[in-house]
Design a binder for these strands. Structure first.
Lengths: 155, 155
DNA sequence: GAAATCTTGTTACATATGTAACTAATCTAC
DNA sequence: GTAGATTAGTTACATATGTAACAAGATTTC
């Protein structure tokens, strides 16, 4: 494919930020629909479960740092998950403000059920890429993320 | 960079849909902040203006098709832009339901002011890519978009 | 040509999200 | 040890968004 020529005109369908946004929304909403219909979880609840599945005992602040969520979103997701009995808080013994979060047995069960579904979505997305294309993609995403200034206040 | 090994475990920070989402949100919110602070437009209003700048006289339905917006979002954006005098509706002579939309002089003025800013954001995002990397990126995004089933109902 | 169906777009309502203000705990400076 | 500043997390409120129901025009079927 020839390189695109970028002139002073803007064509929305060729505008990279637009294309990224559409792609990301398409992917995310397909996956979100799986979480929602099978487990009644929204994306944020799932993200919290995902990092707690990897790293039990994180605080809400840690979770925010690892999920690109702001603290209010984390607080809401944690409250909902706790109300459903999917996670547990344990107040930090040395800091009464913070609480360590862990998945309950029921939370772990859902976690282990979702992981393969999430990975299957990822595989479907990458189905038509060769291994070397996948490798390029990862490198390019890293580079782009470097260029995109993360200006949102997350905490 | 070596290819990632993808096992049965899920690491959120390596999960492609997550990475896409974070990247896209970072990029979009940086640009949105420009639209908002300088012109008082949100992303959807801007998308509508962008396609009407390229192709005057589209109907709301056409706009939805070209912007990956649903019809309610288009309706709301159009109403806001019309209220601000940035676009005009003209009822379709052969179909009383539809209206052709065009930017007013004031709308065009803002359009021509935003375009270079939007392109500058895109350039900043792509600043660290070589021409051949850019070309790879475009190809990969096309492939990914092909794999991601667009299951959202837009109209 | 009238009834049923479909299409374009809007409206209403419920829910989600972002921002700011807040509480309570900890830390720092003195 | 206490006043002020910071930090962890929550709450409240305003706004944004998604879904469904709707109105009005166009099309199809008979």
């Amino acid at each position: 494919m020839a390189d695109q020529i970028r002139t002073g005109a803007l064509t929305l369908s060729e505008f990279l930020p637009y294309r990224l946004s559409v792609l990301s929304n398409t992917v995310s909403s397909a996956i979100a629909e799986t979480y929602r219909s099978k487990f009644g979880l929204n994306i944020w609840q799932w993200r919290v479960m995902a990092v707690l599945g990897e790293a039990p005992g994180l605080t809400a602040r840690d979770v925010a740092g690892r999920t690109a969520m702001d603290k209010v979103a984390v607080s809401r997701a944690v409250a909902a998950l706790e109300a459903r009995g999917l996670l547990q808080r344990e107040v930090h013994p040395e800091d009464g403000r913070a609480a360590h979060l862990t998945l309950t047995a029921q939370g772990k069960k859902i976690y282990t059920e979702i992981v393969p579904l999430a990975l299957a979505h990822e595989e479907a997305l990458l189905a038509h890429l060769t291994p070397s294309e996948l490798s390029s993609l990862e490198r390019l995403l890293d580079k782009l993320a470097g260029g995109a200034s993360p200006n949102r206040k997350l905490w």
